[in-house]
């Protein structure tokens, strides 16, 4: 009798929902951004340290891995920012209808990708102009 009961969550047939995935991503991007704060402080230290320290700091970003990290931080920042606004609406008790949850979730995904793309478009075109 007990064997016929479904176990939940049944991982082989479990369909992930947009809402839970975005929630996990919010936490993930938050932790990732927190790990980026030492790099931000290193930048300020380099600025305070003089021209040579600043050039050395900039040189650390001349490889694909560092640039990938910065790209990741850009997206993480915009995602966490947009989804954070979604969270603030929930905090005041708004936007909990299922349909609204999905609409706002899709909007967050779209806007965060767009903001990342616009930011990198300008950053790369500035770098291209300088070089």
């Amino acid at each position: 009798m007990q064997k016929e009961r479904p176990l939940s969550p049944h991982l082989q047939v479990y369909k992930p929902q947009l809402t839970s995935m975005l929630s996990i991503l919010h936490r993930g991007t938050g932790v990732f951004l927190a790990l980026g704060t030492p790099v931000l402080v290193l930048w300020l230290l380099a600025l305070a340290g003089g021209a040579e320290a600043y050039v050395n700091f900039q040189a650390c970003f001349n490889n694909w891995f560092a640039q990938l990290l910065v790209f990741g931080w850009t997206y993480a920042l915009f995602y966490h920012l947009c989804n954070g606004i979604r969270h603030l609406f929930w905090d005041v008790g708004r936007g909990f209808e299922i349909e609204t949850l999905y609409t706002s979730g899709k909007a967050v995904m779209l806007i965060s990708v767009l903001m990342t793309a616009v930011t990198w478009y300008f950053a790369v075109s500035r770098l291209g102009g300088a070089a």
């Binding site: 920042l77 920012l81 930011t119 500035r126």
Partner: peptide, 18 residues
């Protein structure tokens, strides 16, 4: 603040120390 920060970094990226 973070929108201001990203805008500022884009303006400074790859630029001179001074």
């Amino acid at each position: 603040l973070s929108i201001w920060f990203v805008f500022s970094v884009v303006c400074l990226v790859g630029g001179e120390y001074q």
